Simulated scan of single mutants.
Amino acid sequence: MTDHQLPISTGFVEVDGGQLHYEVAGKGQPLILLQENGLVDKRIWDYQFLTFAHHYRVIRYDQRGYGQSLSSKKPYTAVDDLAQILQTLNIESAYLLALGAGLALDFVHAHASSVDAIILVSPEINPHQSFDEAMADLPTILERLAPAIEAVKQNDMQRATDLVIQDLMLPSSANYQWVRNIVAKNFQAVLNPPLPPSVDINAFSSRHQWYKEIHVPTLLLIGDSARSEIQSSTVSLEKTIPGAQKREISRARYLLNAEQVEQFNRAALDFLSAIK
């Protein structure tokens, strides 16, 4: 994770109602690393950040309320925050490598000319689901998290953290403890959730239409032990986004970039290097 040959610049980007902490390394085509899971911060890319910086100008930043970025004081959108990152760092267009799918796809929809390619890792999104239907599914999500929530209520934070980690990666991963430390650090956000980003309900409910209009190179990366929801999401996105490619990472669940570093890095770099 350490490479002293590559200098790293850091700072804060001013956004409406807050600041976003970022890091930049490398030169060339900009590559922005995104994480949507609310229990990890930009450190989850430690095994990619400097490795990829040998080939690209790599940018990673903390979402509001996580890592070194403070919670928002007023309503905001994650798309506007990402746009502000690009503007502040004088980036006209970039590759997006996202843990999750929503932010990257929403950004393509709003700023198509600013995206040259997208890699979606463990996407869990149903293009045919309206906003109201997604809200109706929240009890199902909460049911999956019920044991961890109960552990939190009992003030057993160690057990709560372990239960959450089991949903993110296979216990056999060599980086299990490293990820656990990151999650434990961000667990305070579960107890005191930051203000979530606002959602464009119309764009959300019409995804099944505009996903078909995405025409940048797209790679879907999924673990062979991914939850069924992620598996079905990946199949749906592959069918909906024109020309989308899919690649499976073996012996991985959700945090593919931490579970199988070499497999993941090779898949991502091979895909990006093939773009003309």
Rank of each mutant, 00 (worst) to 15 (best):
F131G: 06
L168M: 15
Y176R: 10
S93W: 02
A134W: 15
H21S: 04
A98S: 14
K246W: 08
G18N: 11
Q260I: 09
D116G: 14
Q19Y: 06
E124N: 11
D137A: 11
T77A: 13
I141V: 13
K74Y: 02
Q245F: 08
Y66P: 02
V24T: 09
Y76T: 01
V261D: 00
K246S: 14
S71G: 15
A104L: 04
D132C: 02
R266S: 13
L99D: 08
S225Q: 08
G67L: 01
S114K: 15
A244S: 04
I8E: 07
Q68Y: 04
S198F: 00
V235M: 04
E259H: 10
K276Q: 06
M1H: 01
K246D: 12
I59R: 07
V179Y: 04
T77H: 09
H4I: 14
D162V: 13
F49G: 01
G11K: 09
A104C: 05
N37S: 11
L103K: 06
Q35F: 13
P123V: 03
R251V: 10
Q129G: 05
T240P: 00
Q188F: 07
I141E: 14
D106R: 00
S205F: 05
G243W: 02
F131C: 03
G223A: 00
I8R: 05
S122D: 09
K153T: 12
L31P: 09
R207Q: 12
S9M: 15
E36G: 15
I85C: 09
L33Q: 04
K74A: 14
I241H: 05
F49V: 03
A268T: 00
D3L: 08
S72P: 03
Y211L: 12
S113V: 02
V179N: 02
L20P: 05
N265H: 00
M135W: 02
V164R: 06
V58A: 12
L163Y: 10
Q260H: 07
A184E: 14
E23K: 10
A258N: 10
S9D: 15
Y76D: 08
V79E: 07
Y95W: 10
V199D: 04
D156V: 13
S113L: 05
D116I: 12
R251L: 09
I119Y: 08
E150Q: 14
E124F: 06
G28L: 07
I32E: 04
T218M: 01
R64M: 04
L145E: 14
Q68L: 11
L269E: 03
A148P: 09
I85F: 04
Q245Y: 11
L96V: 05
T140Q: 08
Q158W: 12
N175D: 14
N202F: 11
L103M: 10
M135A: 06
Q87K: 10
L163K: 02
F204T: 03
E23H: 12
F49I: 01
V121D: 11
Q209P: 01
A148G: 15
D106V: 00
Y56A: 14
R253D: 04
L99K: 01
Q263W: 03
S236H: 06
I165C: 13
T77I: 10
I149G: 09
